[in-house]
């Protein structure tokens, strides 16, 4: 294995070297020319989670929540991914932040997402984002932080990354507590040989998200967990508990139900 010579550390050392040369220059070429600029502001998103209008409580005793089929459940794990947050003006122009953000309720620092892109002042008719990664971004192995977390979606199911992991316990039809693991990503159909894989992200336009931006600002993207399980498709935990990753119909149901999951709040 002598071709293991490629070396990230050496590469960064090179970058550092180049940077350090430029940083020691004198500063007298920084002449200031007056130009009119549109002010740009920092957007901070708070990611919040509710069940039936009440803040989600994780790892509760018992099964405090109910889906549309009156099946009781609790939540023990919630992780999800959003990307391409987009601000749309009334003339149709869009400001898109091409980044992505992974949320896990186990780490409260992930509940806030500050966009790298600064947003020019003005009035925007709506704010939106992609749930998961769109086709262009959902590339197996492309994101080192997500790889490190093991957030990959199996290549044999179409690859890319998980979009959602929502797990907990529900009371099954014999009134026994059983586990569910609602994992979402590429929809992969095994009724064909080879499997057919369909992209499964969805674009959200947050309802009533018109916003006037004239300073640094923040807003909430609320996830309403019960909506994953209804509207239009009532999700039956007895049928779709786990595994659901290889079940194309379940994946597509999450996609259609997903459109009513998110709300905007400022």
């Amino acid at each position: 294995m002598k071709n293991f010579k490629y070396n990230k550390i050496l590469f960064s050392a090179l970058v550092i070297l180049i940077l350090s040369f430029s940083s020691c220059k004198d500063d007298d070429d920084d002449t200031i020319s007056p130009v009119t600029v549109t002010e740009e502001y920092t957007a901070t998103i708070n990611l919040t989670q509710y069940v039936d209008g009440v803040v989600l409580q994780m790892n509760t005793a018992g099964h405090p929540y109910e889906n549309a089929l009156i099946q009781q459940f609790n939540v023990t794990k919630l992780q999800y991914l959003i990307s391409d947050v987009t601000f749309t003006k009334d003339d149709g122009t869009k400001i898109v932040d091409g980044g992505y953000h992974y949320v896990t309720l186990e780490d409260s620092s992930t509940l806030q997402y500050t966009l790298n892109t600064k947003i020019p002042e003005g009035t925007y008719t709506s704010i939106g984002f992609t749930f998961g990664f769109d086709e262009e971004d959902n590339v197996s192995g492309a994101y080192i932080d997500l790889n490190t977390l093991g957030w990959n979606w199996p290549v044999m199911l179409g690859g890319g990354y998980h979009f959602l992991r929502l797990e907990g316990d529900y009371l099954d039809n014999t009134n026994t507590s059983a586990e569910f693991k609602t994992h979402m990503g590429t929809a992969s159909d095994d009724s064909t040989m080879p499997r057919t894989n369909e992209i499964n992200h969805f674009d959200v336009t947050l309802p009533n998200s018109k916003i006037l931006i004239s300073s640094d600002f923040s807003f909430d993207i609320e996830m309403n967990i019960e909506e994953w399980y209804t509207n239009p498709i009532d999700w039956d935990f007895n049928v779709w508990n786990a595994p659901v990753m290889p079940i194309s119909a379940a994946q597509k149901a999450l996609n259609s139900n997903g459109s009513s999951v998110f709300n905007f709040k400022q």
Binding site: N147, L149, G150, N152, P154, A242, P246
Partner: peptide
Amino acid sequence: FDIFMAEGTGDCFHCHGTPFQILWTT
């Protein structure tokens, strides 16, 4: 490998990682 990676059969990868995860543990 397919069994390791399949949620319906082995389902080992959710804790022990995928080829891209390299360490073979989360």
